[in-house]
């Protein structure tokens, strides 16, 4: 299982990647640095990686890491988005889930404001 660390500001949490091709492609481009956007309780940011949809999901779970092909973006789902109904977590459109946070995802959301830097790296990389 490939493990990563995600840091925003002073908050860093661990996540693990699944066995999808999308996860492997993202793993190969680590470390990733970007500026974040927020949408409800979703954190997202563009990365220089253009992939086709591998296993699109219209609804995801809290803590899921998704890749959104229309915007070449990574999405971190910490809770409902503005188009969620009830407690579901609904991305803007389908994403390929390529991993999940294994700690409390809301810790990241509580730290995050628009435009902050996010750093994603391999777990044992420093």
């Amino acid at each position: 299982m490939k493990r990563i660390r995600i840091r925003i500001g002073t908050t860093e949490i661990k996540a693990e990647l699944n066995e999808t091709r999308t996860a492997n492609a993202i793993w190969r481009m680590l470390p990733i640095k970007a500026r974040i956007n927020l949408w409800g309780e979703e954190i997202y940011f563009a990365i220089p990686l253009s992939l086709a949809q591998e296993a699109g999901q219209a609804v995801v779970h809290k803590g899921d890491l998704g890749y959104w092909p229309p915007g070449n973006a990574i999405c971190i789902f910490c809770g409902p988005t503005p188009i969620s109904t009830g407690n579901e977590i609904r991305p803007a459109s389908a994403v390929t889930v390529f991993g999940r946070i294994i700690e409390d995802a809301m810790r990241l959301k509580e730290e995050a404001t628009e435009g902050m830097e996010i750093v994603i790296r391999e777990e044992d990389d420093g």
């Binding site: 956007n37 940011f45 563009a46 959104w68 229309p70 915007g71 070449n72 803007a92």
Partner: peptide, 13 residues
Amino acid sequence: RGHPVTKAIFNPE
């Protein structure tokens, strides 16, 4: 212009 959602909307599949 550079926002990922803008790209998704103006260059859709």
